[in-house]
Structure formats: structure tokens, C-alpha cells
Nucleic acid binder design. Structure first.
Length: 270
DNA sequence: ACACGATCCTGACTGC
DNA sequence: TGCAGTCAGGATCGTG
């Protein structure tokens, strides 16, 4: 499910339930996620107030008085605020118990996500090699151009590399490359400065519009109140193999690039 | 340093 | 109906 817009939508959805609230404890039904949940999670976070919520890359960070919760939704994770007495469904692995009878519930069928209490999230190893945020000043066409020199990797894999820029997953990589008119298999090092300016703008544009739409729901993504994201209606190439390009009408193609499904128009993208 | 494949895990869907 | 195979929104690790 989650690329940057879905994580951002989740953050905005849980914020009203968390800002300044007192955490009562936690219930861990299955702690075997990508990294194991702290065995002593309830004691670590119980009795602490939430100081601040933020996002870094696709990580949600809930800063507490002591340390922080670091949450990643992986491929199939959702985070919802529900009444604490709501019966758990399959794959509802962790509840963060809040005051006023609510809890924050992590569901993640594939368990590629993670939920960790860490003492110092800014210096945590998971944060170490992350590239710039797409909306930050240090992300630009000039930056992409400079980072890509002499790289023969496909541009699509390049922009999905979190060491280059964070938050761009498979859906939005496809969409941004279409908007920028760049073929996803083109070697990153063969693209000029001007086209990188277009690409940087396209990445920012598509992410911003997707956030405004509440993200993209393909199968099971839901925001913290349970609503689906409707950016799926704005997708121009993703999952549209064989259907006409919205610009030129020729049939969109699908190919595997870097082991991920890629969708593009051979006439509009070079 | 770089680029690629395999891997973690479950569920939904396709085709025989 | 059942079963095998394929694919899925992510990220890390090991290999040349």
C-alpha cells in the first residue's frame, strides 16, 4: 500500500487522536514484523505523553517524552484509530492504547512493516542512508542530475532508491516518469539536466496531488478513519496496460524493470 | 561503488 | 472445486 502520500495521509489522520495525548500502554498480538517489536513495548511507552508527530521517508515517527515510536507500513500495513474495545481482526498485530478509550491499531497481513520504540530516532540505523525529502530544498533537478552521472541503472530504479530520494514507490515512479516524458528503462546517466528538472517537478507534483486525494487505494489501503484514497482515479499509466495513452492514444505497455511492474507509453516516453 | 537477484510474508487472482 | 503458479503499494542483504 504505502508510498509517501499514503503515509502522509495516515499521519494526518492519526494526528487528532495522538497530539498531546497520554499513552496508556500497548498490546502486541504478534511482534514478528520485519524487525521484532520491542518485547517490553508496553512498559517503554506506557505513561508517556505524545510530544510530536512527523514523517521521514515512509516512516511515521511518534515522538514521546522519552524516545519515539518508529512505524513503517511495509507493503500491506494500515494504521487506524478505533475504540479500544473493537474486536481485533486477523493481522491486527499491535494496539497502542490511548486515553479516552481509543487505540491505534496496526494491521499488516504481510508483516513487512515495523513498529519499534527507539531511544533516538534521528540517529537510528534505519534513518542513516536516506536521501532528501522530495519537498525539501535539497531535492531538485540539479541534484538528480548530479547524483546520476555515470550511472547506468534504469531511471525508474534510480528514483525508487531511497538513498537518492525518499518516498517514491512503484506507482508514483511510473506516474512521474510518464508526466516527465522519460522512458522508465532509460539509463539514469543518459538524461540531461533539463529533463531532470521536469522529472523533479513531476515527482513533487504527483506526490502533492496524491496527498490531496488521500492517497491511492488499489486493494486494501484505508486511511485511519477507514476511508479509501481516491488518487486511483487520477492514475494515468499504473495498471493500465493495453489501454490508450491519455496523451497520444497509443496502447500503454507493461514491462518488468528492476523486478517491478512498469507501465509506460513508448511514443510519449523516450 | 554499483547493479541485480533473492528474500521476508500472506492473500487475491488466474488458469488448468 | 482444488491446486499450482503468479503477482502485489517495500526494503535489505548478499553476490559478482
Amino acid at each position: 500500500m504505502p508510498e509517501l502520500p499514503e503515509v502522509e495521509t495516515t499521519l494526518r489522520g492519526i494526528a487528532p487522536h495522538l497530539d498531546g495525548r497520554l499513552i496508556q500502554g500497548a498490546v502486541v498480538r504478534n511482534g514478528r514484523l520485519r524487525l521484532p517489536v520491542n518485547p517490553d513495548l508496553a512498559q517503554r511507552i506506557g505513561g508517556q505523553r505524545v510530544r510530536r508527530l512527523q514523517r521521514r521517508a515512509k516512516y511515521l515517527i511518534i515522538e514521546l517524552e522519552n524516545g519515539a515510536l518508529l512505524i513503517h507500513l511495509g507493503m500491506s500495513g494500515t494504521l487506524r484509530a478505533v475504540p479500544a474495545d473493537t474486536p481485533p481482526q486477523p493481522h491486527d498485530h499491535v494496539d497502542i492504547l490511548l486515553d479516552r478509550g481509543h487505540c491505534l491499531r496496526l494491521r499488516d497481513p504481510r508483516r513487512f512493516g515495523l513498529l519499534l520504540w527507539v531511544a533516538d530516532w534521528r540517529h537510528h540505523p534505519l534513518m542513516r542512508s536516506l536521501g532528501p525529502e522530495p519537498f525539501a530544498d535539497d531535492f531538485s533537478g540539479a541534484y538528480l542530475h548530479q547524483r546520476s552521472r555515470s550511472r547506468r541503472q534504469a531511471i525508474k530504479s534510480f528514483i525508487m532508491d531511497a538513498g537518492v530520494v525518499v518516498g517514491v514507490g512503484n506507482i508514483y515512479a511510473n506516474e512521474a516518469l510518464f508526466q516527465a516524458g522519460i522512458h522508465p528503462a532509460r539509463p539514469a546517466g543518459s538524461i540531461g539536466r533539463t529533463r531532470y528538472e521536469r522529472l523533479a517537478a513531476a515527482i513533487r507534483g504527483v506526490l502533492m496531488q496524491a496527498i490531496a486525494a488521500g492517497g491511492t487505494t488499489l486493494r486494501d489501503y484505508a486511511d485511519p478513519s477507514g476511508k479509501a484514497g481516491y488518487f486511483v482515479l487520477s492514475l494515468q499509466v499504473y495498471d493500465r496496460e493495453g489501454r490508450p495513452c491519455l496523451t497520444c492514444g497509443s496502447a500503454l505497455r507493461q514491462a518488468r524493470i528492476g523486478q517491478r511492474s512498469s507501465f509506460f507509453c513508448v511514443r510519449c516516453q523516450r
